[in-house]
């Protein structure tokens, strides 16, 4: 299997540790024993192929899934899915989920005293195009309280799930908004010690994709693990 090219390992501090005590739920759910280091085999270097057949034309518009329009600030969220070598990741599934404009999820576990919106589920999916681009129309999610510590509030965020070409590129993350005053206080955001890596979870306001008289644009590129050696690197 010498023809297999593996994926790079993350630089120190750029990914969270399993145990991050300020995030209390991690304490009883992080492995205590060290992980067993193993080579990436054919199993890890492959993964499911999702085609457009699983994605409907309106699945990336979270404002059009019900009879009426959801309340809240409409927004366009777009960007590119890349690997760490800067190459686009085409035809790859992206799933997102988020709270409504009031900071409430339609989920039996969410007991926050804020209204549900009958016109908003908060789930969308899409497949990146041939240049790794994606686009969603949604509303800006609200901040909401959680019980991690006294007066704990989650910053506004959207959950993202991504596959890329193999199980080594699998990623679930959260996207945040620029200038959110709650970011410095959020143990989940701050579990990443490397500032550049932490800030890579924050989207940018984007005039280019803002649509006059309709919606603000936000841009966010997502970067998956890249292969150890690529033709692109050899060109340097």
């Amino acid at each position: 299997m010498s023809d297999l090219i593996g994926y790079k390992r993350p630089a120190p501090g750029t990914q969270p540790n399993y145990l991050h005590a300020p995030y209390q739920s991690s304490i009883k759910r992080a492995p205590n024993k060290p992980l067993i280091r193993m080579p990436q085999t054919l199993t890890e270097l492959t993964g499911p192929v999702y085609g457009h057949e699983r994605v409907g034309p309106l699945d990336n518009d979270l404002t059009k899934q019900h009879a009426g329009e959801p309340l809240g600030e409409r927004m366009i969220l777009s960007g590119r899915l890349l690997d760490e070598n800067g190459r686009p990741v085409p035809h790859s599934l992206i799933e997102i989920w988020q709270a409504n404009a009031c900071g409430r999820y339609p989920h039996p576990g969410d007991q926050h005293d804020a209204p549900l919106d009958p016109n908003f589920t908060g789930y969308g999916r899409t497949v990146t195009d041939s240049e790794g681009r994606y686009r969603f129309v949604t509303i800006k999610p609200g901040a909401y309280p959680w019980r991690n510590h006294h007066n704990a509030w989650r910053p506004q965020h959207i959950h993202f799930s991504l596959f890329g070409p193999s199980f080594m590129t699998r990623l679930v993350t959260q996207m945040y908004f620029p200038g959110d005053p709650l970011l410095p206080f959020d143990p989940i955001f701050n579990c990443v010690t490397d500032q550049r890596a932490r800030d890579s979870m924050v989207s940018k306001f984007d005039f280019e994709t803002t649509i006059p008289e309709f919606a603000l644009g936000y841009a966010w590129d997502i970067v998956l693990r890249g292969r150890d050696a690529t033709p692109m690197e050899n060109k340097k």
Binding site: P10, A11, T14, Q15, P16, Y23, S25, R54, L82, D83, E84, N85, G86, E95, I96, W97, Y105, P106, H107, G109, D110, T121, G122, Y123, R125, H159, S161, L171, V172, T173, Q174, I188, C191, V192, D194, R196, A197, R198, S200, M201, I222, V223, L224, R225, G226, M232
Partner: peptide, 23 residues
């Protein structure tokens, strides 16, 4: 070009909304 891979985060308590439609 070398980019920093986006940091991972938790699926959180409402994972079912986002991850069970394609279960």
């Amino acid at each position: 070009m070398t980019l920093v891979p986006t940091a991972s985060s938790t699926v959180g308590p409402y994972l079912h909304i986002g991850l069970t439609p394609l279960q």
